[in-house]
């Protein structure tokens, strides 16, 4: 093994541009959200946010094209490939911890906070402040129904969520089949199975969107519906966001496959997306279990 050929890229404008874009996104979002909350009308925040988003998309596109180009022209050694792998794995680990924070929240409120408020356990005296409140999960009746009217009804796990589980789990299989096909050089099969994965992901998103509409319109299950709604939406919402991202990534590698990118030996870009997709899938299984069923 030799590091002599380790590729150190020359100067690049992407990172500083990306920092500016990120700043615009953050500053714009802050302005917009504050303005919305204060009920005042300002377009500055939205403008900056939009500008930042456009810029960021452009940068990501350019930056990744650079990387793809470098990779395709054989500048990356195997060692470089390993650096990317470490990078992606630790990135996914950071995502795992992000979700862990919300799962931890869910467990805490279910097992400790809500029972205490309902008069159970070591801090059950707290119930003095919420006369008549009873602990239950799902939390249909919140301690203060005027400020946080609980949901009238919650989502049954055995309809859309079950369907979505089937969709996502099978998409993990389809992407694996595509991966196998890539390794054995069956290009047309890759295209088909990747397309199937994208379709499965996209239909998941459609159903998820439908579920949200139903939750808001028919079930009274909203962000304002107390802690059940809050944990439900933060978990499923961030998951949905990740599926969206994953689907976009799948689409990109699908296009790249069609352009003839990736070889049987060299296809880290493909694998990174596949890992990410599996991760999103595993999170969903956790959600299905702890948010919907239990």
């Amino acid at each position: 093994m030799s590091t002599a050929s380790y590729y150190v890229p020359p100067q690049s404008r992407w990172p500083i541009l990306a920092s500016i874009a990120l700043f615009l996104l953050a500053f714009g979002a802050g302005n917009l959200i504050n303005a919305l909350s204060a009920g005042s009308s300002t377009t500055l925040g939205g403008l900056l946010l939009g500008l930042g988003a456009l810029l960021m998309i452009g940068i990501l596109f350019g930056w990744f094209s650079n990387v793809v180009h470098e990779s395709m022209s054989g500048m990356y050694s195997e060692q470089m490939d390993r650096s990317f792998r470490w990078g992606m794995s630790w990135f996914i680990f950071s995502e795992v911890m992000f979700f862990a924070a919300f799962f931890g929240t869910l467990f805490y409120v279910r097992n400790l906070a809500v029972p205490w408020l309902g008069g159970e356990g070591e801090k059950g005296v707290s119930n003095m402040l919420w006369e008549g409140f009873q602990a239950q999960w799902p939390l249909m009746t919140t301690p203060d129904m005027e400020r946080f009217p609980g949901p009238q009804q919650i989502i049954s796990p055995w309809h859309l969520p079950l369907l979505n589980t089937i969709l996502l789990v099978s998409s993990s299989f389809t992407v694996t089949i595509a991966h196998k096909a890539l390794k054995t050089g069956h290009r047309s099969r890759i295209v088909i199975w990747l397309a199937a994965t994208v379709l499965l992901g996209a239909s998941f998103l459609v159903f998820q969107a439908y579920e949200y509409v139903e939750a808001y319109h028919d079930l009274g299950l909203t962000l304002h519906a107390g802690i059940y709604g809050a944990t439900f939406f933060i978990l499923t919402g961030f998951h949905g966001l990740h599926v969206t991202l994953g689907t976009l990534m799948l689409i990109i590698i699908w296009l790249r496959v069609m352009k003839g990118h990736f070889s049987a030996e060299h296809h880290f870009g493909f694998e990174a997306v596949a890992w990410y997709w599996h991760f999103v899938d595993v999170v969903w299984v956790g959600l299905f279990l702890f948010v919907y069923i239990l």
């Binding site: 909350s37 203060d144 939406f233």
Partner: peptide, 21 residues
């Protein structure tokens, strides 16, 4: 951010949350 701007109650007992969380 959600509690401040989007009406959730993670850290508010009135909705079943908990400041100690």
């Amino acid at each position: 951010l959600m509690d401040i701007h989007f009406g959730t109650s993670f850290f508010n007992a009135a909705g079943g949350g908990d400041p100690v969380l």
